[in-house]
């Protein structure tokens, strides 16, 4: 959270007015927080201290759920699978989506058509795209293995094999980079043209301009995409839920999938809530670390405000 200039406790009327206006601006969110978010979140914390079978009233059990978690092999497996997914799919997705955004920002013919096409995968309903990927990964006739066979390789079983199932889902995740790409594209629009002109006057080539202008100016957007992709990667659920049910042999047992199973299939909402709070702490820790690091590498034009 080091990105903010810390609010000093000056009591000048100007500062007081600004503070009041600040609260007014965030008032909609504060109200939403109080009405819709805070109580459910606190309730979920209370659930984590209970044995709650969903259809029976919760019974207070103290820290039992948290203790049990330590001895639960599937919890560790889910944590492992999810961490692997986060540390691979997040950077890969970030780089790929940035590269595509840069490409889509080039002077090329029919650029709006290409931009639409590259965003297409996120527009198609999940259910349709999942069915499509199931047959891309089909070991016998699927697109991937057919292509591999052309070059003389017998492809793996993909989703059917415990060593390949997770990589398969990571590959699949790269296909929906349209979302972050869009945000990068909007970010690229905000870079003042005069910065490039100045760089050109200094004799900078395309590569140098990228490093000296584009990249630094994009850091706030990269930062945003990094944080959000990380949070979303931690919470990945749908693909495994539809395609693998966590298998084979728990190879794709994502954390939130396991949490979901506990909550609504195994009647252990209390345990699920404990899982949720551990996940919350893990994400919070990672986010805080990234936020702290941001002081070094994220550049805000609007940040420095000394009066």
């Amino acid at each position: 959270m080091a990105t903010f200039p810390s609010a000093r406790k000056s009591k000048s009327p100007v500062a007081q007015r600004e503070a009041l206006e600040g609260y007014l601006f965030i008032l909609p969110w504060l109200l939403g927080l109080l009405i819709f978010i805070l109580v459910p979140i606190i309730a979920s914390f209370y659930f984590s201290l209970t044995s709650f079978e969903v259809v029976k009233p919760p019974i207070f059990v103290g820290l039992e759920n948290y203790v049990r978690l330590i001895h639960d092999q599937l919890f560790w497996q889910a944590l492992k699978v999810t961490c692997i997914y986060v540390v691979t799919s997040t950077p890969l997705g970030l780089i790929l989506s940035f590269a595509i955004a840069l490409l889509m920002n080039q002077k090329v013919r029919f650029v709006s058509l290409w931009r639409t096409i590259f965003y297409m995968p996120t527009l198609v309903p999940v259910i349709a795209s999942t069915m499509l990927w199931l047959w891309i990964f089909n070991p016998q006739f699927g697109l991937l293995n057919t292509l591999l066979r052309y070059v003389g390789i017998e492809g793996p079983l993909w989703l059917g094999h415990s060593q390949w199932a997770l990589p398969s889902l990571i590959i699949m995740s790269l296909w929906t980079v349209g979302g972050p790409m869009l945000i990068y594209l909007a970010g690229l629009q905000g870079i003042p043209t005069d910065l490039y002109e100045a760089a050109e006057v200094d004799g900078a080539g395309a590569w140098a301009k990228f490093w000296a202008v584009t990249l630094p100016m994009m850091t706030p957007v990269i930062f945003f995409n990094l944080i959000m992709n990380m949070i979303f990667a931690f919470q990945v659920f749908t693909q495994a839920f539809i395609m693998t049910q966590g298998g084979p042999r728990y190879a794709t047992l994502f954390y939130v999938l396991y949490l979901y199973q506990n909550a609504f299939k195994f009647f252990r909402m209390g345990y699920a809530a404990a899982l949720a709070w551990v996940l919350f702490l893990a994400i919070l820790l990672m986010t805080a670390l990234v936020f702290r690091s941001s002081a070094i590498w994220v550049f805000y034009e609007g940040e420095v405000r000394k009066r």
Binding site: L259, Y260, L279
Partner: peptide, 20 residues
Amino acid sequence: LRFPGRDLLFLVLLSTIMIP
């Protein structure tokens, strides 16, 4: 805008998406 508790509130805002 600058107001007391802003950073903390922003952290709260972010954390609301971290609970499944």
